[in-house]
Nucleic acid binder design. Structure first.
Lengths: 337, 337
DNA sequence: ATGAAAGCGCTAACAT
DNA sequence: ATGTTAGCGCTTTCAT
């Protein structure tokens, strides 16, 4: 294993015939340094390929590591990727670097990642909590002043800052859109009810029905964890004596599954609104109407929350709700028969 | 700004009435410690909420920081996200943490990120180089033993390990697939020729034509940087006196643009093969045939390369080519008229 | 304008 | 089985 040790300040100092402290002054531009000395130091730095060791600096200064730890379920999911990107861009100017890990929605990996991040003395912690995790252990860290923000879903076990989408209101708006086009039999296809986002969106669905005075029908509620399950669910809600005329798909998989299911059935008369946008939504036939989330904004909001905490804001935990936006493209505007 | 300073080994030691070194022994389980001492140390650690400071440890041990710096153009792009995920999973067991930054395809941000990572003394550096960047400055780091791997595209200025998709061969296979279905007038819609991946894929396109003895026709080559441009390009190659009967879309945008363009023209008779898979490919009508890349495998391959370097492999720079896979779904199997 | 000494939190290499 | 000393690379605090 090669020693990758680079030149240190002392190395540079020795070259020039000064002390490490002088080099430090040149590097950080604080104390006064003679022009000629500075020049020679800079020259030696360049010649030796010196890079100041940021970790040693942080340690001596007593600062935490200039990183923010982010735990997301899956880096390949563009929702979380975009969120991370929005956050990173927003904190970059503050000199913070993003360190990420994916939990695969398991509480074990999540715990282990958080633990690593804390051992690294991250400046702040951002977590998309997995379904079954709890975070009592973070109370002490929070009490000690470590900013903690939960993303996309609130956490169990701690009260902490949190940024979520307007799931309930977004779903309400999506379903109201279908109702406005004359539908009264609207199916809901979503995740398992144990998921926070599904519960919220389901509430929004019921809100919209209630507002319009449409009775709730259990038979129109289906679970579809993946494409195929959702496609099958579409078949069920479209059958029976009082079939649905419209579908509200409460997540990405449900939406694409619904598209697939409708295509297989050759049904071009069923209205469809999905929750969360898809890159190909507009090339579908008909183009898919969705309730779009704004993951980059969730990241930015988290960054804002975090930075205000770093600036000394000790007020009680806040929850930021990031608005969704109804994007009407065609599939949701099919009229009721 | 709150002091988030946690308990140190000395704090724990003082509590128990031993020396820091003893606590260190307990934490790292190296030297011998009396059962009773160990118990009391553990108790004190728990009580004080002690977390060993990994950064201080790495510094003292003379190890580099246990992170790998990864520079990608865009975290929201699932290709890079999946790549990062594949890498992260593969190196996790080695105790390496991923630190990421996005360059937005700009050489300035890329340079700045690399610089930050080097200042943090990352264990290794992974870069998806932006088009106009050059990395001469990394020669010294490489020479000093820092593992550097370029991803998706080779870099200018340094010879280093590199992992890329089988762009040329993949494109060749995709176009050959169209030829096998009787097409002889096959359009190529892709990025600007200054991009490495486009150049490779274009070569593959020409390889396939040459193999089949089909003359190359400049008029069938179009640039489409985004959906709309690609959709428009489709219109052009389908017009004229000798229109295309099939389209090879050399990237994601070109592929979705082509789908859009064909839909707008109401053309269901034109065969289409895209390069790089899409989550919705199978719900399109007809389902989209693609040459799928394997971003997770690119990440894993990079991890493998990297770890062998960390294990002392000093052999000359290697380039790993990750195979692509033709996924026939329907759009590519439409027969030539 | 520059330097000397001490120490951030931890551990290597010795003691004892 | 435990403690001492020194020092990783840097910066603080005081000198000079």
């Amino acid at each position: 294993m090669p020693k990758v040790r680079g030149a240190t300040m002392s190395d540079v100092a020795r070259e020039v015939g000064v002390t490490a402290k002088t080099v430090s002054r040149v590097v950080n531009g604080d104390g006064p340094v003679a022009e000629e000395t500075r020049a020679r130091v800079l020259e030696a730095m360049a010649r030796l390929g010196f890079r100041p060791n940021l970790l040693a600096r942080n340690m001596r200064v007593g600062a935490r590591d200039s990183t923010v730890g982010l735990v997301i379920p899956d880096m390949g999911n563009p929702f979380f990727g975009t969120l991370a990107g929005g956050f990173e861009t927003a904190v970059r100017s503050r000199g913070l670097t993003l360190i990420v890990g994916s939990s695969n929605e398991t509480s074990e990996l999540e715990r282990s990642l958080i633990s690593t991040f804390l051992a690294r003395r991250v400046t702040a912690l951002l977590v998309v909590p997995s379904a079954d995790s709890e975070h009592r252990s973070l109370r002490a860290e929070r009490a000690a002043g470590l900013p903690v923000v939960f993303l996309d879903r609130p956490a169990a076990g701690v009260t902490a800052d949190c940024v979520v989408s307007a799931n309930r209101e977004g779903a309400r708006a999506g379903v109201a859109h279908l109702i406005a086009h004359g539908h009264r039999r609207i199916a809901f296809i979503g995740d398992s009810p144990k998921l926070y986002t599904r519960r919220e969106r389901f509430q929004g669905y019921r809100d919209a029905l209630a507002e319009a005075g449409i009775p709730f029908d259990r038979a129109l509620v289906e679970i579809g964890h993946d494409h195929e399950a959702a496609a099958a669910a579409v078949g069920r809600v479209l059958g029976g004596t009082a079939p649905a005329t419209a579908v509200f798909a409460a997540n990405n998989f449900a939406a694409t599954g619904a598209v697939l299911g409708l295509a297989r059935l050759g049904r071009r008369d069923v209205a469809l609104v999905g929750f969360d946008d898809l890159p190909l939504a507009e090339v579908l036939d008909p183009p898919l109407t969705v309730v779009a989330q704004d993951p980059a904004e969730i990241g930015r909001a988290a960054a804002g929350l975090l930075m205000s905490r770093l600036d000394g804001d000790r007020s009680k935990a806040r929850t930021v709700v990031v608005p969704t936006r109804l994007v009407a493209r065609g599939s949701g505007e099919l009229p009721a028969p």
